[in-house]
Simulated assay, not measured.
Amino acid sequence: MHRSRFSTLLIDVPRDDVPAATTFWSGAFGVPANPVAGEEQFTNINGAFPGLVTAIQSIDGAPRFHIDIETDDLDAETARLIALGAVEISRWLDCHTLKAPGGHLLCVIPVHSDPDVFKQQATVWP
């Protein structure tokens, strides 16, 4: 048995476009933008979607959106999503990057939200 939940919406932006994208998305959602200490590739725009972390991520590729699913068992959640048709394409630290049918990216990450929020909102999987 393990638990997981959709926790994060990432707006992936080419490195050179991050300042303009940050100004745009912060203004579009009416929330402040805050750099993430120690993780320079991320700028939080939390509050855009209550209950979700929302951030801009500086990338070296084409712009896109991707989601993170947090879990208390990385291997079990990754296996569950692969059984549904996803394909694991890479790993970075504790993050498993998958491609869902249709080509959308998602990452399976360790729990990073408040433990009570995770417990209340996560789905329990057999």
Results as ranks from 00 to 15, higher is better:
44 N>A: 12
46 N>G: 12
47 G>H: 06
47 G>K: 03
48 A>N: 01
48 A>K: 04
49 F>Y: 13
49 F>V: 08
50 P>K: 10
50 P>Q: 10
50 P>I: 04
51 G>F: 08
56 I>W: 01
56 I>G: 02
56 I>V: 08
57 Q>R: 05
58 S>C: 03
58 S>I: 01
59 I>R: 01
60 D>L: 03
60 D>A: 14
60 D>I: 10
60 D>R: 08
60 D>T: 06
62 A>Y: 01
62 A>D: 14
63 P>E: 06
64 R>G: 04
64 R>H: 15
65 F>Y: 15
65 F>H: 15
66 H>D: 06
66 H>W: 07
66 H>A: 09
67 I>A: 06
68 D>P: 00
69 I>V: 13
69 I>R: 06
70 E>Q: 14
71 T>S: 08
72 D>G: 04
73 D>H: 14
73 D>L: 04
73 D>I: 00
74 L>G: 07
75 D>S: 11
76 A>D: 08
77 E>Q: 15
77 E>G: 07
78 T>G: 00
82 I>D: 01
82 I>F: 07
82 I>V: 11
85 G>E: 04
86 A>N: 10
87 V>M: 03
87 V>T: 15
88 E>P: 00
88 E>C: 05
90 S>F: 09
91 R>K: 06
91 R>Q: 07
92 W>A: 13
92 W>M: 14
93 L>P: 00
93 L>A: 15
94 D>L: 13
95 C>D: 12
95 C>Q: 15
97 T>Y: 02
98 L>T: 06
99 K>W: 01
101 P>A: 11
104 H>R: 13
104 H>D: 11
105 L>Y: 10
105 L>W: 00
107 C>K: 00
109 I>T: 11
109 I>F: 01
110 P>K: 04
111 V>A: 05
111 V>K: 07
112 H>D: 13
114 D>H: 10
114 D>T: 09
114 D>C: 09
114 D>M: 11
